[in-house]
Design a binder for these strands. Structure first.
Lengths: 140, 140
DNA sequence: ATGTATGCAAAACATTTGCACCTGG
DNA sequence: CCAGGTGCAAATGTTTTGCATACAT
């Protein structure tokens, strides 16, 4: 019962929050912009404003329920925090996002931070490329 | 003579472009937002519009003279391309930016991209943290 | 009841663009 | 001279905010 997650975050269990959480959970893409979420709400016949979508997504991020990433291209994307840290590899042609986790990279980062006298709070690693798979509409 | 760089990029050697290149070369911070560059121009008594700063910086990036990065916090930062690829570690308290290069991370990235069927075009690795050095005004 | 949440419209930001004027080669 | 560059103001696109109303507890 994920509504408990909302409540545990100190937030009231309102229709917009429940619906937005549902959308994040059911999305195939798993990485959605605020606009994507808003459009999906409209498709489902919900009357929820874009401002609310932004507010709720921000609250989810602050509560640790979701993460926000800045891929290239203006809009931030949000994804549910499923508890497994990972980085991203993004196809610049079809927009597909793959996730990966590499312990060697993680530990190198820790070593680098230590060497430079930094205490890591967060990090962002995004590989951009072209996916050479059958389903990528290589448009050029 | 760096004006040659501008010319080689197929751009006319105009005053705004020369001044902006000078500023990028002389900046201690090495990573400046368009606004930073604009303010520095004003300080130096130049009458150059912010729109021109954006246009010129974009041209420099396209010409391979500079790079653009999206650290957290809205504004993009620009730095001169000195020919040595590196990634960044940013102090979220004092804004200091350190650069690093780690061949292990680089090769891990290549392996990961290959495994996922991607051809890398670019990548962005930013470590966020707190610098625990004497000169960081640890403000909290 | 009452403190939060929401919707809407307006504001805030970073960045881009249209257009008349200027300038480098 | 003239294509390309610039300044300014207005437009753009994304995200945030003020405020009156609506809702969860």
């Amino acid at each position: 019962m994920e509504n408990q997650d909302i409540r545990k975050a100190g937030l009231k269990v309102t229709l917009p929050r429940v619906k937005i959480l549902e959308i994040l959970e059911s999305s195939d893409a798993r990485h959605m912009t605020a606009e994507d979420v808003y459009k999906e709400l409209l498709d489902r016949g919900e009357e929820i404003g874009l401002a609310t979508v932004y507010r709720v997504l921000t609250q989810f991020v602050n509560a640790g329920l979701a993460e926000k990433h800045h891929f290239e291209g203006g809009q931030a994307v949000f994804e549910l925090d499923r508890g497994h840290h990972h980085d991203h590899i993004v196809c610049q042609q079809c927009g597909k996002v793959a996730e990966f986790y590499d312990e060697t990279i993680e530990s190198c980062q820790r070593a680098i931070a230590a060497k430079h006298g930094f205490e890591i709070t967060d990090h962002s690693l995004i590989i951009y490329g072209r996916c050479v798979r059958q389903n990528c509409p290589n448009k050029s």
